[in-house]
């Protein structure tokens, strides 16, 4: 079957496959996420991606980068944070991506490179956004009692949840609260009985630098207005207490739209099995993923652990 849910397609495919296996409808599912984006000019792809917005918001000329810019301005205004702090997400994620042989960009960047780059949606610049990427990722999902017949290194989906928000962005109460991210996260922690403190590392949907910070707060890893502090204090670095996007995230690894959610799960698989090489996180028993469609139209949150 084809699962088409814009940027959230991969996470949704895993969510559906997991439901189909749990219900006993199927035994095993091969999930393939793929996207070819570079075959059209960037302005055409901007137009195609903007088509996921509601009809009248699209008529206003709104795009996803412009929404990220409004979010960044709101965050800076609310918490007194400068643009350099927000762009530090790109420094961290490009550093991580440089350690990932599967990343689109495998070269570190520093803050001065970022601050000199082209403005895309003021105040956000080129490096504040994920690149336009081609890419694919795949994984096999199967019943618990069949896992050992595929591999000795299986990873278990401890829980996976999905939630939808109002797709009309201007009707939301706040630019800094993405309901679906908060609700999908709350649901998956409730479902598994785990707490945020149990998570060893996370892959989140950093289509823009500001989104990594805001999502990390909406997920509940950090208090509102303190996501940037975690970044500043090194907590979200590979060597930190809660590494976020050790793969390089969408920002450096790339965001081939339909593949992203599957690629996040692949990164979690590698990290949990200790196969992530130079970007291996220290504690890697429990991994968290957050895959988001549109600008928070819906989200899928997953918690993974070693199969025992």
């Amino acid at each position: 079957m084809r699962v088409d849910n814009t940027s959230g397609s991969g996470g949704s495919a895993i969510y559906i496959a997991n439901s189909m296996i749990k219900s006993g409808y199927v035994n095993t599912v091969l999930i393939i996420g793929a996207e070819k984006m570079t075959s059209v000019p960037s302005r055409r792809s901007t137009s195609i991606i903007a088509s996921l917005l509601s009809e009248r918001e699209r008529k206003s000329g709104l795009t996803l980068p412009s929404l990220a810019a409004f979010m960044a301005k709101a965050y800076m205004r609310e918490y007194g944070v400068g643009m350099e702090m927000i762009s530090s997400v790109a420094v961290k994620n490009h550093r991580n991506g440089a350690l990932n042989q599967y990343a689109h960009f495998q070269k570190p960047v520093d803050l001065s490179d970022i601050m000199k780059s082209k403005i895309i949606a003021d105040p956000l610049r080129l490096y504040d956004f994920c690149p336009v990427s081609d890419g694919a990722a795949s994984l096999i999902l199967t019943r618990d009692d069949m896992a050992q017949s595929f591999t000795g290194k299986a990873v278990k989906i401890r829980g996976i949840s999905s939630y939808s928000s109002n797709p009309v962005i201007s009707e939301r109460k706040s630019l800094l609260e993405i309901d679906c991210v908060k609700e999908a996260s709350d649901k998956v922690f409730k479902e598994t009985g785990l707490t945020r403190k149990d998570v060893d590392f996370a892959e989140v949907h950093d289509m823009s630098t500001i989104l990594e910070i805001v999502e990390s707060e909406n997920i509940g890893f950090f208090e509102k207005g303190s996501g940037y502090m975690a970044l500043r204090d090194g907590i979200t670095e590979i060597s930190g207490e809660l590494p976020i996007n050790p793969s390089g995230g969408l920002n450096s690894k790339g965001h081939p739209i339909g593949a992203t959610g599957v690629a996040q799960a692949c990164e979690v698989y590698q990290q949990i099995n200790g196969l992530a090489g130079p970007r291996q996180v220290k504690r890697h028993e429990v991994g968290f993923t957050l895959n988001m469609a549109g600008f928070g139209n819906n989200a899928v949150a997953g918690i993974y652990e070693a199969f025992s």
Binding site: P41, S42, R43, R44, T46, S47, A50, R56, E57, S60, G61, L62, T63, P65, S66, A69, F70, K73, A74, K118, I119, I120, A121, D122, I169, S170, E171
Partner: peptide, 30 residues
């Protein structure tokens, strides 16, 4: 609030401003 856009859809000008507007109890973009 306003945001100036420099990467725009191909059916629109190469740069323009998006404004967040409040009017009679509703917020929207133009």
């Amino acid at each position: 609030d306003t945001v100036q856009l420099f990467a725009t859809p191909d059916n629109l000008p190469e740069t323009y401003y998006i404004l967040r507007i409040s009017s009679d109890g509703i917020t929207f973009f133009c």
